[in-house]
Amino acid sequence: MWGLGTMSKQISVNISNEILDIQDAYNFVCDPAHGAIDLFIGAVRNNHQGQNVQGITYDMHDTLSRQSFEDIAKEACNKWKDIKIYINHYKGDLPIGGISIIIAISSTHRAESFDACRYVIEEIKKRSPIWKQEHYKYGRSSWLPGHSLRQESNG
C-alpha cells in the first residue's frame, strides 16, 4: 500500500492504491468558519456505451498527476477565496461501485464550494495524466479514449 501526496493547511492532494476514505476528506476540509462542504465522489459504474463493465483499472503518471492536482487546486483557491480543497485519486484496479476519486471543498457559503468542486473535477478530466481500462466479460478490456494533452500543452 502506498500514497503519494502533498498537503498544506488549505490544499491536500494525493494518489493512493488504498480504498479512498470519505471521512478523511471531510476531516481535512472541515473548518469552524466554513458553513458549506461540497463532496464529489467518482464511482465505477457497470455500463458504458452498451457494454457490461465488470471493473476498471486506473493508470496514472504519478508525478505529473500530482502536479496537475496541485496546479488545479491553486487555481481554484485563486478563483474562489477562502476555500479548502481535498483531492484523492485511486490508482489500480477497482470493482463496480469502487471509488475512483474524492474531491471535497469547503467554503463560507455553498455557492463557492459547488462552483469550485465542479471546476476541479472538470479540469482533472481534461488535464491530469490518468487513463481508464474497462474490463468486460470473457476477459475483454479496452482503454477508453480521452482528451489529448496536446491542446493543453500548446495553451
Binding site: G42, Y58, M60, H61, L64, S65, H89, S100, I101, I121, I124, K125, K126, R127, S128, P129, I130, W131, K132, W143, L144, P145, G146, H147, S148, L149, S153, N154
Partner: peptide, 22 residues
Amino acid sequence: LQDDYILNDDATLSILPPVCGG
C-alpha cells in the same frame, strides 16, 4: 515537452495518450 524541444543527453521520457481521469 513541446515538439521542438531538443535532447542533448540521454533521457527517460514518458508518452502520454489522451487522458480520461476522474
